[in-house]
Simulated scan of single mutants.
Amino acid sequence: MSAPSVELQGAIYAALKGDAPLMALISDVYDRVQRNDDGSAHASVWGAQQGYISFGPEFVIYEDAECLDLQEVNLQIDVWSRQVGRVHCKRIVAEARRVLLGVTELTDNALVLAEAPLSRITQDPDGLTTRGIIEIRYEVEGH
């Protein structure tokens, strides 16, 4: 049996990678992005689409009560686009959010709830990159 947050990340990764409309917009999905010496993303991660998705910060709230192992897993999914303007990033965010909310089943643990109450679009300080941030919350019952 896998830890709920580990199994959930695997399910999210597989769902994002397996979605053809989303993958047509981005080069790949990364848990850790390959970086240059200056900290910028390596040119290879951008791909021909000039966009990718990465896993951002995560925190888990444990709600152990009455023999239940319930975990609230809060994830940030980061969207990156180098296409001119914000439209490409917005399209990726919309598709990724659709996919994230479609993750409804796990193998070892029970997914109780998925909600994505917030997304943001920002300009990266480099002046070239548009960043999308999706905040998503899952409730998972461990077995």
Rank of each mutant, 00 (worst) to 15 (best):
E66C: 00
I53C: 02
D124W: 10
A41N: 06
R137Q: 09
V29Y: 12
L113I: 09
L111E: 05
I61V: 09
R131L: 08
A114E: 12
R131Y: 09
V29S: 07
Y62Q: 06
L68T: 07
A41S: 10
V73H: 05
I61K: 07
P57I: 07
D64E: 08
N109Q: 08
D19I: 12
Q49C: 01
S81L: 05
A43C: 01
D28E: 13
E7Y: 09
G10C: 12
G102P: 06
T104A: 12
A24P: 12
G18P: 11
E105F: 02
W46F: 04
E58A: 10
I133W: 05
S27G: 15
Q49N: 04
F59M: 01
D64T: 03
S27E: 15
R131C: 05
L100T: 06
R35V: 14
Q50D: 06
L118V: 15
G85A: 04
A110H: 11
W80C: 01
R98G: 01
E95N: 08
V112M: 14
V87R: 14
Q50M: 08
A110T: 15
Y52N: 09
P57M: 05
I26M: 09
D124H: 15
A20L: 14
P125S: 13
V112Y: 13
A96M: 04
G85I: 06
